[in-house]
Amino acid sequence: MYDTTRTESAVSQQDIKISARNVQVYYGDKHALKDVNVDIQDKTVTAFIGPSGCGKSTFLRCINRMNDTIDIASVKGEIRLDGEDIYDRRVDPVQLRAKVGMVFQKPNPFPKSIYDNVAYGPRIHGLSRNKAELDEIVEKSLRGAALWNEVKDRLAEPGTGLSGGQQQRLCIARAVATAPEVLLMDEPCSALDPIATGQVEELIDQLREQFSVVIVTHSMQQAARVSQKTAFFHLGNLVEYGATDDIFTKPQDSRTEAYISGRIG
């Protein structure tokens, strides 16, 4: 399980996967995200928490440039992935998103078979040279998403026929199959029942061994359960960032404390 011997001070520069400096986001005239600075570590689960509309999802969507698809959004500042500015003019967002995968709030399987859903990413990015390799990727990803045993006999059935929790794990498998380095999850459990939520949380804990996972969540309990680092956002500001245990037990900022104790949000 989690390597508890590693402490905050022991994190070396190499472990930083994503570093954001002075990130500002505007939706038209609205200043949605103000001056965010944060370093996100590799092979760690980082949780973004905060009341709705605080900018946590906005920031998440900046990390793989999904905000590009919204006409009125503009992003300023600098986000580096492995030291490379992802908003550099030379960066192709398509290539970036292959490295930084995303799982969305609502399960959104494509109206294709389970197999084709998972194989979609490897196909467009050319990760397999033949059918056997593709089969291998699909199986590995479905196992990785703890779904293989449930679906291995019906890979040709449509992904939309699965239950909500299965659909979300399928979406995770789909993202994992693309072999990303970072996995972004935008409230992945908000549409799921408690049992499915438990399965997905367990999965997130396993995914940490391969990826840097960033999860946006509404639920403080969930953040406490799955994450090692937590960032608290409020009204577009990154208020506090630190080890999850510290944030929940001895918050530095009065706003963080108010949120955690249930007075705002």
Partner: peptide
């Protein structure tokens, strides 16, 4: 829109999204 987001989030280009996800749907 969530289907488009799903495809774009996996790193497909807009035309791949249209051809392989939107149009089949």
């Amino acid at each position: 829109q969530s289907l488009r987001d799903g495809a774009l989030g996996l790193g497909s280009t807009p035309s791949e999204t249209i051809k392989q996800v939107v149009l089949p749907a």
